[in-house]
Amino acid sequence: MDLQSLKKQEHQRRIKYGFMWAFFCAVLWGLWYLPGTAVWVLNPFDQMYGEVAASNGDGVALVIVAVLITAFNAATVILALGVWNGVLGKFGEMKRTLKEFHPCSKWFFLASIFGGPMAILGSFIAMGFVGGAFAAVAALMYPVVGAVLASKWYGEKVTKRAFIGIIVIILGGITIFGGGVLSEIGSGNVLWIGYLGGLMAATGWGIEGAIAGKGLDIAEPDVGLTLRFIGEGVIWWIIAIPLLAIIGFPMIKYALLAFEPLTMLVLVFAGITFGFCYVAWYKSFPLIGVGRGQGIGNLYGLFAVIFIFLFFGDVPSWTILVGGFLCLAGSTIMFSEDTGEMESLRGD
């Protein structure tokens, strides 16, 4: 084989890996919805919801419980990533990266602010004050924010074709959850804070991706990601939970009650799926770019509905067929792009 075709083959392999990682991310993210949904009905979270709702109303209860669940989620993700980095022998590199705060690790800590409190909390606020379908659709918008930011800020190439692919996948997601959104919004007076939550989710994850892309320029993905979750862990456990406890919410009491075998098992499962979905997400960015990585990652909406159907038996409405078809079409548009366009992901 000549040099040129070997080069081309090598290049195609890189793109294939990138899409493969982004696809894994979508599957694991979809899978995460199983423990992510189940944990709400388990104690102590169920009990906590009841107690807070009795004094502060359902919306507030949802957000407060969400903080505790997200905090536990972050903790189990850190655990899973710790094992992962240990097996890969990357603790040395982690220490080296952490020390480079100014050029490098600060980006991951910033990413944790946008991905954690902003996106995840926003998503729960949208869920609590408007509804689950609205939250899902709002979150689907994040690749547009991510792709636009990455291209404007540090000149990531987002080809027309990639952008069309992103849009088609988003339309697919909207179709999947669409009916639910209409009935939620139509059901009467929705508080503005619910829409604000939706906006937080859409922009938070998009900004996170763009910022992470900046840090990933000069860092290892596995290491960068772990730093990002350590940042999130600090935000929840050292700042948010003590603060809420001081205001008077029963955070500490229920945090201590969470150490029940079944609850822990579900939380660990959530940590593993969420952690590795993020590993795959961050690994795809340097290979195919933030825009494409997030676009394919968006297929999680479809996978979530499928897994929830398989495990919980919630039959999705027929619109999932149309939506699923659009998701497939959008991904095909991206997969089939001529890889020559992606020789380098930066440039005009």
């Binding site: 022998g89 040395g92 990933l216 000069i218 340097p286 290979l287 380098s344 930066r346 440039g347």
Partner: peptide
């Protein structure tokens, strides 16, 4: 230079770092 990065696995992962840097346009 890096005593903790011996062996074939790390050899490949260093090479992968190079590929990532190249695809990032650096």
């Amino acid at each position: 230079e890096y005593p903790d990065l011996k062996g074939n696995f790390h050899r490949d992962s260093i090479n992968f770092d190079i590929i990532e840097l190249a695809s990032g346009g650096m």
